[in-house]
Design a protein around this nucleic acid. Structure first.
Lengths: 233, 233
DNA sequence: GCGCGCTTCAAACACTTGTTTGAAACTACC
DNA sequence: GGTAGTTTCAAACAAGTGTTTGAAGCGCGC
């Protein structure tokens, strides 16, 4: 294990501490970084804030991560790795609906899907920070955005497309199905990214679990109505 | 006209140059600030970048605005003041629909409304910067957010609520009408705030005018379907 | 000409930034 | 105990930060 002390010449290293059970200083730094970067973004957090929060020496940032920027990238990987555990739940949802094979199963799966997404976005926001980190990535995209989309968002999106296609087999493999899925996901994501605005527009001070459920069922019913084929007229 | 040279003790001044036709250095600074802040955010832009872009002396920032932070606030007011000219168009749309009074008029007005919003969000993004500035405000909310919501977003939102209520008189004055309007606006706003993500998910490199129109009509039809009452079954 | 506000300027200020240093402390294996 | 490898530490580094300064320049009425 060599010391990664050459920040300027070697920024690519990210595994200087391998699976040796690694020292806790590195872990504490990641936890502190997740908290502070989520709250204030990359540029607004200085190294001294980080090490003070993590209770480590100032040299630890460059010792373990090579640079502050690299610590930021590792922090995003770290945060979204923790959040990816929501994925299996959604995958199981899709499997169940596909096993049933009916349109009604798809309808119910979409209801659960939206509820789950809204929960991840609005409720687990209190304990995890991925939503805020993603918000910063939207306005200040870095290389990390590619990783987040490919490993986290894209799989979630594909599950929704599959559910829409089961509900509306006539749309299968069309761009329309993709855009319909985007309409559903967009309604959810907007509550995450534009949270300050939506709170003001709906005249609320914060999101409570019961209100989040209400929003989720409203989005589901709105979207299922939009996708229903059997219209009169 | 006294010199506002006391940044630390008096940050509230914002009208040091009144309607005297003000010197062009101040205006150039605002234009440069709008461009740079939109691209990189408050913390990532330094005063020397600003004055270099605006071709003014470094002391001009504190001379005209008292501080860099205050220049940022003035820049947001400035940018959204320019963008508010989109409002009368939407208000006229509502007036027309209300004059006709029919459900079909409301349907058509919602189509135009969505098209107009998507245009403001995705096409005039090239020339104006309010969309990017708002993105930064979402992740780094400042006092300016209140002004933006009250003067810009809230009026737009209320117009949409009125249109939804004309389309569905049974929902008038209910929270359901508000949430339905939020579903529609959310689909649009998401394309602005999560632009980098949606581009990746839809496998596109950029938004073209024809694709924006396609998105707009998809959102309209999706939402009008969702709000239609005459369902079979 | 002179004086008076307002504006511009280069230089400097005090402070913060990310990073590096070299020695000290710790750990584990011989 | 000795030693090599790893981690921690206070101090310093150079570069960059927002802000201030005091003099110089400007336009204009007198």
């Amino acid at each position: 294990m060599t010391k990664p002390r050459t920040a300027k010449t070697d920024r690519l290293i990210s595994e200087c501490v391998k699976a040796t059970g690694g020292p806790e200083a590195r872990e504490r730094l990641l936890v502190a970084a997740e908290k502070l970067f989520a709250k204030r973004g990359l540029a607004s957090v200085c190294v001294r804030d980080l090490v003070s929060e993590a209770k480590v020496n100032i040299a630890a940032v460059n010792y373990y991560f090579g640079s502050k920027e690299n610590l930021y990238l590792e922090t995003l990987r770290y945060s979204f790795r923790n959040s990816r555990q929501a994925l299996p739940k959604l995958e199981a949802l899709l499997k169940g609906a596909q096993a049933a094979g009916t349109v009604d199963a798809a309808r119910q799966a979409i209801r659960w899907y939206v509820e789950e997404i809204m929960h991840i976005i609005l409720i687990s926001r209190e304990t995890s920070c991925h939503a805020d980190l993603m918000g910063h990535e939207m306005s200040h995209p870095t290389q990390a955005l590619d990783v987040i989309v490919e490993e986290f968002i894209s799989p979630i999106f594909k599950i929704l497309i599959a559910l829409v296609e089961q509900l509306r087999p006539d749309l299968a493999a069309t761009k329309e199905a993709n855009l319909a899925a985007m309409s559903i996901l967009g309604q959810c994501l907007n509550y995450s990214l534009a949270l300050p605005i939506t709170l003001k527009l709906l005249k609320r001070s914060k999101m409570t679990p019961t209100f989040v459920n209400k929003l989720a069922s409203q989005i589901s019913e709105f979207s299922l109505n939009a996708l229903s084929q059997n219209k009169g007229g």
